[in-house]
Design a protein around this nucleic acid. Structure first.
Length: 401
DNA sequence: TCTGGGGTCCTAGGACCC
DNA sequence: TCTGGGGTCCTAGGACCC
């Protein structure tokens, strides 16, 4: 039996949610109706476009581009800053509403959900249900969503990306040719900027061109990735809607520094504050890591990283910081650094100790310290306490939780 | 005051083992 | 003493997503 899958996508999520929150707080200007963007702090060198209004889009402004460029494209562009706690509020509200329609629902990102309605139609058509969801979201929350309806996740996602905003689209098997194959291949999920020149060389310009190629040819040129995009172009995707939130496979934090740093001691101080964020989140998940990774980006955007597998699995700030410090030392060659990041991998729910690292007393002491600091953070906010002398990290970590 | 931050997955090469 | 072949694990880098 064919499945019935829906993909629900918030239109211009960060911008719409900011608009709704402003209106709720008594502002009269709806920023969805003017050339506006949500952007990071340019003074902190985080000036990229995070979301744009439809009018800003008409000026050719793209998500991810520097605000500096966006301003050049549109002289009277209004820039608003992001507020993730507001975004989570609306994201959760939407998710809870959608849960009324099925138990088989997957949060794909802060502003996207997949729903499997196969056994939840209750005699109604998916189109009728989609219309009801659209109407309710608009009336109850004040923002709009696009909904894609299909027989698998990939096609549902492609469908929700058709004409926007506030639209419902279907993409059933018999509509693939007419609705999807005509699109440029760059519109296909998972086909990014770097693959385009290679596809172009193979005379693949539309999704249809890709679909009609021999699968073997794609595998030869792109390996596993080639097989995947060929299947996507042909509307093949058997993946399930997963309603249980999976454990993270890795946890990491990074920061673009307000100014370049060319000094190891200073980098180490920032490193400590980042390790603290990451290990705090690790402990929140009750997970332990055995791979530590440190990443640097130089002022000319060259990225390098070092990682190390350790013999234990830990979530201790101290142990992970000591390892990270070693990695940083090996990695750092004196260049001016723009970004520093830490990531822990190989996560497991079991701690693995090794007596030689800390004696039992020292270990207990460190655990207690982590626990106390975590409690203070939980109670009074993440920035209430820090081990890092100079650390000045404005945003609360773990935006996703 | 031009280029964020958090993820997942894949690949290639080298070390090491039998 | 002219050089196999299969496998696993580890590391660095990169593509893609939102």
């Amino acid at each position: 039996m064919e499945r019935i899958i829906m993909h629900v996508d918030v239109n211009n999520a960060f911008l719409s949610w900011t608009a709704v929150e402003r209106l709720k707080n008594g502002e009269t200007l709806d920023i969805r109706t003017i050339p506006a963007i949500i952007g990071g702090d340019e003074k902190q060198r985080k000036g990229v476009v995070l979301a744009k209004s439809p009018i800003a889009k008409k000026f050719g402004i793209q998500t991810g581009e520097p605000i500096y460029f966006a301003r050049k494209k549109c002289r009277n562009l209004q820039v608003f800053s992001s507020n993730f706690s507001v975004y989570y509020k609306y994201s959760n509200a939407l998710y809870n509403l959608l849960c009324e329609y099925t138990d088989k629902i997957e949060r794909f990102s802060i502003d996207e959900c997949f729903m499997d309605l196969t056994n939840y139609l209750a005699g109604r058509t998916p189109e009728i249900i989609a219309k009801e969801i659209n109407k309710r979201v608009k009336e109850e929350f004040g923002f709009t969503v696009n909904i894609g309806i299909a027989n698998n996740k990939l096609l549902a996602k492609m469908a929700s990306d058709f004409e926007k905003p506030d639209k419902i689209h279907t993409l059933y098997k018999n509509q693939i040719k007419e609705k999807m194959w005509t699109l440029p291949v760059s519109d296909l999920f998972m086909v990014g900027r770097k693959s385009l020149p290679k596809l172009e060389k193979m005379h693949i310009r539309t999704i249809g061109d890709l679909a009609k190629k021999e699968e073997k040819e794609l595998i030869k040129a792109f390996g596993k990735y080639g097989k995947m995009i060929w299947e996507y172009a042909n509307g093949i995707d058997n993946s399930e809607v997963i309603s249980i939130e999976p454990e993270p496979k890795c946890i990491g934090n990074s920061v673009t520094l307000p100014y370049d740093i060319s000094n190891l001691e200073e980098l180490q101080e920032v490193l400590l504050s980042i390790v603290e964020q990451t290990t705090y989140r690790l402990r929140k998940h009750k997970l332990y890591a055995s791979v530590i990774n440190v990443q640097l980006k130089t002022k000319d955007f060259k990225v390098s990283s070092h990682q190390k597998k350790i013999d234990i699995a830990t979530n201790s700030t101290k142990i992970i910081y000591e390892e990270a410090k070693k990695l940083l030392k090996e990695l750092y060659n004196g260049e001016a650094i723009r970004l520093i990041g830490v990531r822990v991998d190989n996560l497991s729910s079991k701690e693995e100790t090794q007596i030689s690292i800390f004696d039992t007393k020292e270990k207990e002491k460190q655990e207690k310290l982590d626990e106390v600091i975590d409690k203070i953070k939980n109670k009074y906010g993440y920035n209430a306490i820090t081990r890092a002398g100079k650390a000045d990290l404005k945003e609360t970590p773990d935006k996703l939780k």
